[in-house]
Amino acid sequence: MNNSLVSITDYNKEDILSILDAARGFEKKPDRDTLKGKVVATLFYEPSTRTRLSFETAVVRLGGSVIGFSDSGTSSSTKGETLNDTIRMVSCYADAIVIRHPLDGAARYAAEISPIPVVNAGDGSNQHPSQTLLDLYSIRKTQGTLENLKICIVGDLKYGRTVHSLIEAMSYFKPEFKFVSPDELKIPEEYKIFCRKHNIPFTETAELNGSFNDADILYMTRVQKERFQDLMEYERVKNVYTLHNAMIKNTKPNLRILHPLPRVNEISMDVDKNKKAYYFQQAQNGLYVRQAILSKVLKTGDV
């Protein structure tokens, strides 16, 4: 094991809580020099400006340096270099690798062959553990706890990797789920099996209106065009749900609305001013959580 973080299931409850505790410390004091002299390589085989800048800022604010590329069009993979060779080459220069790749499983493979820790910043429709940890951080920060919460998850529950990881990570904290999706994008059977096995109550519905009136967290997701192999299917479902400010009127006072961003049409702009909208602060929390992740994989002693 090289201390990599590929999937949220690589971390147990204790690991997760220690990341969240450390992230709280970074929120109070984000500028440190604990990664001084360390080089982190960010290998982005598909563009993701938000995630890349968040990781790179996390490194720089801890005193480390960044190398890498943000688009495979400008990297050696256009010359046909295999992932294997790139990882081996980069691990000669850097102390840790942050990788984003359009293919499922690329990060697990990279972690397997790399002598230095690998952090998965999204592999296709598969895993995106730093997003999950920042979701948990946001949930705990707004609710004061992760235990016994009612969580309503809306949108693409079939391809949405953040949804699948959130279910797995929350399973330690006795949640109750409501899954809201069109028929075409229902939660896959294996996650229902997972919930039953962990005694997690859940219900499924296609109706958004009113479905989150008793919820503590409303987790909205985007229908991601790039995950569809059938574009006709995408066209049918892309605008199926839009959250408007009026729909939030009868919700609990502690309800917070989360979204992994970017959003398209699923949250109307009139929601942004509502104090229950939390998605922009959620994105900011990503920085502290990624500082905690990098500190853990590079063993700075802060986590």
């Binding site: 295999t82 992932l83 294997n84 790749h101 359009p102 293919l103 499922d104 499983g105 690329a106 493979y109 592999d123 296709g124 429709s125 192999q229």
Partner: peptide
């Protein structure tokens, strides 16, 4: 083979 066409093992010699 993996049945997922987007799996890395179907694109690289793994």
């Amino acid at each position: 083979h993996c049945a997922n066409p987007m799996c890395i093992t179907n694109h690289q010699p793994i």
